[in-house]
Simulated scan of single mutants.
Amino acid sequence: MGMIGTVSRRIFGVRDRVLPGPVAPGDVLAEAADLRVRLGGAEVLKGVDVRARAGEVLALVGPNGAGKSTLLAALAADLPADGGTVTVCGRPAPDWPARELALRRAVLPQSATLSFPFPVEDVVRMGRAPWAGTRREDCDDRIVREAMAATEVGAFAARPFSALSGGERARVALARVLAQRTPLLLLDEPTAALDLRHQELVLRVCRQRAAAGDAVVVVLHDLGLAAAYADRAVVLDGGLVAADGAPGDVFEDKLLSDVYRQPIEVFPHPRTGAPLIAPLRDAR
């Protein structure tokens, strides 16, 4: 079984658990209703309504401090609500036991750190820990290989995680999330440490998971990536939802200029028609 399998059994147990059932396109897999969250005495989210649906990539965008990561953590049931409600797969977030929740949602934090120099393949295999002792454990090897191939980390599978570059670590962390094989994926700035090619790779993976029926919620700073790959975008500003809809509908000059406190122009791509977003700069 190996060390990771042994550890996962100790953490999650070997008792039979209720495995996630099938989901249909459009099913709401995570929802915040009038969500309010306070951190350090400040109200970070001030009554937010958001739904993440199966088969959809939902981008959370907005300036620094808008509440994007806080909202993602609340949808993951990692951060308690001070008001309003959060549901995951139709059940109030606080009611999920950790071992059951881990079968239904996978979370990619902003930074990936490990205290021990695990090989890359073992790090990815950690994503299979929630399935230890279930009938789906037999698929572990195949799923780990597929996750590593999707993120292009197989070439350094034997290298210690601690020896990788920041971008390589980010892709390994994403592979771990993919290996978890949950219907809800919550990704916090997965492209922040990546070069142009791998930014595109990660967003293509997001689209592929949505096409396969998952709900994907991704925090992005790059509005161009959100416009190109997201089915829907929620624009946050000061802990409130400033807009919610298809990027082509909500990415509009005045709204974005107001939210980012920076003149922004939006124009259609000459070939695809997708919105292109750029700061408005003085001509030189």
Rank of each mutant, 00 (worst) to 15 (best):
P94I: 11
V50I: 14
E137Y: 10
A150G: 01
R38I: 00
A73D: 14
T87Q: 12
E152R: 15
T70I: 03
D95I: 02
A33V: 12
A73N: 15
A149C: 01
V88M: 12
E137K: 07
P130R: 03
R91G: 05
G90H: 07
P25E: 09
R128N: 07
T151H: 04
V144K: 07
R105P: 04
S165N: 03
A33K: 11
V123L: 04
E100D: 15
G166F: 02
S162L: 14
G40T: 01
L58Q: 06
E56G: 08
E56N: 07
F156Q: 04
A155H: 10
P160R: 05
W96C: 11
D122K: 11
E100F: 01
V107T: 15
G154S: 14
G166N: 06
D34M: 00
A77K: 08
G133M: 08
P92Y: 08
A76K: 09
L60Y: 00
W96F: 08
L45W: 01
F116R: 05
G62E: 08
K46Q: 14
V61R: 07
E31W: 01
R125A: 15
G166Q: 06
A52S: 09
G127I: 09
G65C: 07
G127D: 08
T85K: 04
R105N: 11
G62M: 09
E121K: 11
E43D: 12
A149P: 00
F161Y: 13
S115H: 09
K68L: 06
A106N: 13
R136W: 15
L58G: 07
D138A: 15
Q110V: 03
A81H: 06
T87G: 11
R125D: 06
V120S: 09
T113M: 12
R142T: 13
D122Y: 10
V50Y: 02
A66K: 00
V153E: 01
K68H: 06
G40M: 05
G55L: 07
A112K: 03
G67P: 05
V107G: 13
P117I: 10
M126K: 05
E137A: 12
Q110P: 03
